[in-house]
Amino acid sequence: MAKLPITTRRSINLLLEHAANHLKVGDAMPTEMQMTQIVNSSRTAVRSALAHMVEHGLIAGMKQRHLLRRPRPDDYFDVTELHSATEQLQQVLMERIYERDLPPGAEFTEVELSRAAGVSTIAVREFLIGFSRNGLIEKTPRGSWRLCAFDSKFAQELGEAREMFELRAIERIATLAPDHPAFARLADLLARHEALGKEPAESHAEFPALDREFHSFLISLLDNRFAENLNEAVSMVYHYHYQWDKRDELPRNQYAVQEHVAILRPLVGGDLPAAMAAMRRHLHSSRSTMLNALHARESSMPQA
Rank of each mutant, 00 (worst) to 15 (best):
L15T: 04
H66S: 14
E95P: 00
M53R: 01
V124C: 08
R9D: 01
L221C: 08
H56S: 13
S152E: 15
Y255I: 10
Y98E: 09
A233K: 08
F214T: 04
A20G: 07
I122A: 15
L294Y: 04
A233I: 03
K24M: 12
D271T: 07
D151N: 15
E107P: 00
M1D: 11
N21I: 04
L196I: 00
T140L: 06
A117E: 02
E99D: 14
I219L: 07
L230T: 08
E163I: 06
F217Y: 14
F154V: 06
S220P: 01
L167M: 13
D101F: 02
N292E: 14
L82K: 07
T8C: 09
V79W: 01
V111I: 11
D248S: 14
F183H: 07
A155G: 02
H22S: 15
Q90S: 14
I219D: 01
V54G: 03
T121I: 09
H295Y: 05
E228A: 14
E232L: 12
S235D: 12
A233Q: 10
Y238I: 13
R96S: 10
E171I: 09
E95V: 07
S132Y: 05
A205D: 04
Y98M: 09
Q258F: 11
L4H: 09
R185Q: 13
E157S: 10
G26Y: 05
D179S: 12
N21R: 15
A195Q: 09
Q254N: 11
A28L: 13
I6A: 04
A60P: 02
A85D: 13
L158P: 00
N231E: 14
E112V: 02
H260E: 05
H22R: 15
C148Q: 13
W145H: 07
F165T: 11
Q258W: 11
H284Y: 08
G269W: 01
L176G: 06
S203A: 12
A256K: 05
E160D: 13
D223K: 11
E166A: 09
E110V: 12
Q34C: 03
I6Y: 00
T8N: 05
R287A: 15
A262C: 04
S286P: 02
S41T: 09
A205G: 06
A106G: 03
L128N: 10
A28V: 06
E194Y: 00
E166Y: 10
I219T: 13
R115P: 02
A20N: 10
A20Y: 01
S152R: 09
N13C: 08
A256H: 13
Q254W: 01
Q303L: 10
M1C: 10
T36A: 01
L291R: 04
Q37V: 10
A116F: 04
